[in-house]
Write a protein that binds this DNA or RNA. Sequence first.
DNA 1: CGGCATCCATAAAGATACTG
DNA 2: CAGTATCTTTATGGATGCCG
Lengths: 117, 117
Amino acid sequence: MNKNIDLIIDDENEKCPVETALEVMDGKWKVLILWYLRRDKKRFNEFQKLMPKITQKMLSLKLKELESDGLIIRKVYPVIPPKVEYSMSEYGESLKPILKQLYLWGEEHKKLRSKEL
Amino acid sequence: MNKNIDLIIDDENEKCPVETALEVMDGKWKVLILWYLRRDKKRFNEFQKLMPKITQKMLSLKLKELESDGLIIRKVYPVIPPKVEYSMSEYGESLKPILKQLYLWGEEHKKLRSKEL
DNA sequence: CGGCATCCATAAAGATACTG
DNA sequence: CAGTATCTTTATGGATGCCG
C-alpha cells in the first residue's frame, strides 16, 4: 500500500512520535469526538445522540481534556437555558489526516470484522 | 490541509467506521506495538527494550489480542532456549497508513507539546 | 527466553442520581 | 441544557515467584 512509511524513521530507539500523537487521542472517545467535530460545531446533547454509549461523565471529561489540549474550542452563550457549542480549533484540524485514515480503514474492514464480533 | 475528508461521509448517524478502526487499536500499547513491527519481526524482549514502561503482563496480553485480531503473527521456534517472533500480518499491514499519519503528526507537534507537558 | 500465576494498588470507565 | 457528585466496576500497573 504505502512503502514510504519504511523510510521516514531509522532510529527506533528515539522516543517515538507515535506516542506523542497517542497522548492527545488517548482512548477511543476523544477520537470519536474529534471525528464528529470535523465539519460542524456540536452541542453537548448532540454528542450524546451521536455516541449513545458514552456517559455524561466521560463526555464532559474528554471535552475538557480536548479543550485543555487546545484541540477544540468551547463557546458558552450566556442564555437560559444554557447553550454551549464545541468546535475544532486550527490545531485540532491538523488531526484530520489521521481521522481520515481511521475512517478509510474502518470503512474497508468493518464488514470483515463484523463476522468476528 | 485535506478538505476531502468532508466529502467522504454524509450520514453522521450511521455507525461510524472510525469506531471500527479504534476497536483494534484500543489503548495506546497496541498501536505502539504495531508501530515497532511495521518493518521487522520482533521478539518479546525486544518489545520490552523498546517500550520500557510496559509491563510483561500488558505486553503479553496485548500481543495476544493483536494476534487474535489477526493483525500480527506469532511464530514459535521449538528450540532451547525458547524463541518467539512476532510479525505483522497482511491485515496488520493495512494499518500502515494510519501509523504513518500518527507518526507524521507526532513528529510535527512533539516540540509544541513538549512545552505543555 | 518467553512467558504465566498470584496478589495488591491505582487509575480509568460506567451507572445512577441530582442541580444551576 | 449542560453538566456535577457519588458509587461501583473494569482496566491497567507493579512486584514477585515459577516453569518448560
